[in-house]
Design a protein around this nucleic acid. Structure first.
Length: 547
RNA sequence: GCGCCCGUAGCUCAGCUGGAUAGAGCAGCGGUUUCCUAAACCGCAGGCCAGAGGUUCGAAUCCUCUCGGGCGUACCA
C-alpha cells in the first residue's frame, strides 16, 4: 500500500537520526493530503518530534529529509510549520494499481479476523407486527456490518432473536383471537393494550379458512393454538419483509428455548453464586450499579416471571458457549440503559470486556414536506418497511439506511427520495459501474489478456494517479468501517470514487488510437470497476452492466 | 433532576484518535453533446462549524459551562 510505503521511508530515516538525548518512541503518522500542492502524502513527524529532539520543527524536517531514501519519490518538501510533503513517482502508483488488479475480486478483503468467529445480532424485533422503517435501518446496518466483518476475514453468523414467550405474545394471541371472532361475524373486540393493526385482520381471515371452527372460548388450549398460529405467521411475514431487502439470517433464536432448557434458571443461580443479586419488595434484583450499570434492575418480578434483562443475560451466556470470539448487538438508542446493565452483568460473570459490543443507532424519522398533503397526513405515522421498499426499491432503501453514521438521526425526506430518483446517489454510483462495463463491451479484443503485465507507463495524468491513490485506500476503509461500526464510510467512499471516475470519463478517452495508452487506461478502468463492484457488493446493491 | 446521542451551507449530512485555505449531495442561478451511455460534466452563489470560556505552536475536532433537539431513567420488550 502507498501509505505504508511512505511510512517505511520515514521510519528508516528517523532511525538514522541520533536520538541520544531521548529514548521516547514516536508514533509516525502519515496521512493523505487533501490538496495537490501538499503532495500525495504528508507527515507531521517533525512537529511531534520537535519536543523530543529539542530541534525546531522545520530544521528537524530537513534533517529527516536528508536521510530519506529517494527511491520511488519524485519530490520531498518541508512545508508550513514543518510538515514533510511527499510527491511519489509514477512507478509507485503503477505498482499500486497492479496490486489492485492482481487481487481482483479479493481486493479490499483481509485476514484481520482470520480464524475468529463473530456473531451479529440484529433486528430481533418482536413478532407482534410488521417491520417498520426503523427496523429497516437496523436490518441493513446489521447486514452490512456483517458483510464488512466477513470482508476482513471473520467467520460471521447473522442472528435474529425473537420473543415467543411472555406477556406481549399472550396479548398478540388474544388480539388475533378477537379478530378471528370478528371474522366469524362476532362482536369480540381487541383488548385495549392489544395489537390493533390491520395485519391481524388479514391473518384472522386466512386462519378462518384453514381452521374452519369458531373457537367461541379463549381457553388455554385455544390460547396456545392462537399463539402458535400468530407467531408462525408473523415470523413468516417478517422473513418476507427481510427478503425484500435481501437480508437473510443464519440463525433464528427462540427465547422460549432458553426457558425450556433451564438456562434462565441456571443463569440466576450463577449470578446468585457471585453475590450479584438481592431480594427487595418481593422481586429479585441485579446489583448492576456496582458493576458500571446505570441502575439496579429487576431480574425476577414479584409475580415470579423473569424480566427481559434476566433472559437476555442467559441468552448471552448461551452465545458465549457457542464459542463466538465477539458478539455485536445492533440496537436502537432506546435500549441504551439496557445495554449498560447487560455489560455490567457480563462483567460480574467474568467475561472479557471485548466479548460483547453494541452498535447503537438513532432512529429514522420521516420528514414531511410542507404543503404536500399526502405527506402531512403520513407525518408521525408508522410507515411499514414493506411499503417503503415497494415505493423506493431495494437498492435505494439499502443505500439510504447506511449512508449516515449510526449514531446520527436519520431524517429521510420520503417524498424527495421517491420523486427524485434520477439525482439519487445510488444511481450515480451504479451508473459509474455501468460506464465501465460499457467501455469494456466496446473495447472488444483490445482488452488485455493478462492484467498484471499491462504497460502502465502512459498512465501519468494527475487524475489517473489520484484515482489509483483512492483505489489503494479501499482496504483501509473497509477495515475501519468494520471495526468502528461505520458502514457509512463505504457510502462516502463509493460516492467519491464514482465522482472522480465520472469526471475522468468526461475529460479523457479510454479507447484511443494509441494502443499503449488504451491498454493502460483499460487497466485503470478495470481497477475502478472492480472496487466499485466491491462497494456495491458490501451493500448488496446491484451492479448493473447496463442502465 | 441525572445519563447517553446529536447541533457544520437554504435542506439532508460527511469531516471529530487535534494539523496547513471547512467538504459532498440536493435545492438555486448560468453553461457543456462531431467523440467510449448527458442517469454525466463545468462554473457561480451559499459558513463567526449552536454560544461562551479553557488546553497549545495549531481546535469544527480535546476539556468545562450554557442553550437547543432526540432517547433513556418500567416489576415493557
Amino acid at each position: 500500500m502507498l501509505k505504508s510505503f511512505v511510512h517505511s521511508l520515514l521510519k528508516s530515516a528517523w532511525q538514522e537520526l541520533d536520538h541520544s538525548g531521548s529514548d521516547e518512541v514516536i508514533e509516525i503518522e502519515v496521512r493523505r493530503t487533501d490538496r495537490p500542492e501538499f503532495g500525495d502524502f504528508a507527515s507531521n513527524i517533525a512537529l511531534t518530534g520537535a519536543s523530543i529532539t529539542g530541534m525546531p520543527p522545520r530544521e528537524l524536517a530537513q534533517q529527516i529529509i536528508n536521510r530519506l531514501s529517494r527511491k520511488g519519490v519524485k519530490r520531498i518538501e518541508v512545508a508550513g510549520p514543518g510538515f514533510i510533503n511527499f510527491f511519489l513517482a509514477d512507478e509507485v502508483f503503477h505498482r499500486a494499481l497492479r496490486g489492485v488488479l492482481a487481487a481482483g475480486e479479493r481486493f479490499g478483503r483481509s485476514l484481520h479476523g482470520a480464524g475468529k468467529r463473530v456473531q451479529v445480532e440484529f433486528v430481533s424485533s418482536n413478532p407482534t407486527g410488521p417491520l417498520t422503517i426503523g427496523h429497516g435501518r437496523q436490518a441493513v446496518l446489521g447486514d452490512v456490518l456483517a458483510s464488512l466483518y466477513e470482508a476482513i476475514g471473520y467467520q460471521v453468523s447473522r442472528e435474529y432473536y425473537f420473543n415467543d414467550e411472555g406477556g406481549q405474545v399472550d396479548m398478540l394471541a388474544r388480539s388475533l383471537w378477537a379478530r378471528y371472532r370478528q371474522a366469524w361475524g362476532e362482536k369480540e373486540s381487541v383488548p385495549e393494550q392489544g395489537y390493533h393493526g390491520e395485519y391481524l385482520v388479514k391473518i384472522a381471515h386466512d386462519l378462518k379458512a384453514s381452521l374452519q371452527q369458531p373457537f367461541p372460548l379463549f381457553d388455554s388450549a385455544t390460547a396456545q393454538l392462537f399463539k402458535e398460529e400468530a407467531l408462525s405467521r408473523m415470523i413468516a411475514s417478517i422473513k418476507e419483509d427481510l427478503a425484500l431487502l435481501n437480508v437473510r439470517f443464519d440463525n433464528w433464536f427462540s427465547e422460549a428455548t432458553l426457558h425450556r432448557s433451564g438456562e434462565v434458571k441456571r443463569t440466576l443461580e450463577l449470578l446468585d453464586g457471585k453475590g450479584a443479586i438481592y431480594k427487595k419488595d418481593g422481586a429479585t434484583w441485579l446489583a448492576a450499579e456496582e458493576y458500571g450499570g446505570t441502575k439496579d434492575a429487576v431480574l425476577i418480578r414479584s409475580n415470579g416471571r423473569p424480566t427481559y434483562l434476566m433472559v437476555d443475560i442467559a441468552y448471552h451466556i448461551n452465545k458465549w458457549e457457542r464459542k463466538f470470539d465477539h458478539v455485536i448487538n445492533v440496537q436502537g438508542a432506546d435500549h441504551h440503559a439496557q445495554q449498560a446493565n447487560m455489560k455490567a452483568a457480563m462483567r460480574m460473570l467474568g467475561y472479557p470486556e471485548d466479548f460483547l459490543a453494541y452498535c447503537l443507532h438513532q432512529f429514522v424519522t420521516i420528514k414531511a414536506k410542507e404543503g404536500v398533503e399526502r405527506m402531512s397526513t403520513r407525518a408521525g405515522k408508522f410507515i411499514e418497511l414493506r411499503v417503503m421498499i415497494e415505493d423506493l426499491g431495494k437498492d435505494v432503501v439499502r443505500y439510504f439506511m447506511v449512508a449516515r453514521k449510526p449514531e446520527s438521526h436519520l431524517e429521510l425526506d420520503y417524498a424527495l427520495a421517491k420523486q427524485e430518483t434520477m439525482d439519487n446517489p445510488v444511481y450515480y454510483i451504479q451508473y459509474s459501474h455501468t460506464r465501465c462495463a460499457s467501455i469494456f463491451r466496446k473495447a472488444g479484443n483490445r482488452i488485455p489478456r493478462q492484467w498484471d503485465e499491462v504497460d502502465l507507463s502512459l498512465i501519468t495524468q494527475p487524475v489517473e494517479l489520484d484515482i489509483i491513490c483512492l483505489l489503494d485506500r479501499f482496504p483501509e476503509v473497509v477495515e475501519e468501517a468494520a471495526l468502528t461500526f461505520a458502514p457509512h464510510l463505504i457510502a462516502e467512499y463509493a460516492l467519491t470514487l464514482a465522482g472522480k471516475f465520472h469526471r475522468y470519463y468526461t475529460d479523457f478517452r479510454v479507447l484511443t488510437a494509441e494502443q499503449l495508452l488504451t491498454q493502460g487506461r483499460l487497466a485503470l478502468l478495470r481497477g475502478v470497476q472492480c472496487v466499485l463492484r466491491q462497494t456495491l457488493r458490501l451493500f448488496k446493491i446491484s451492479a448493473p452492466e447496463e442502465m
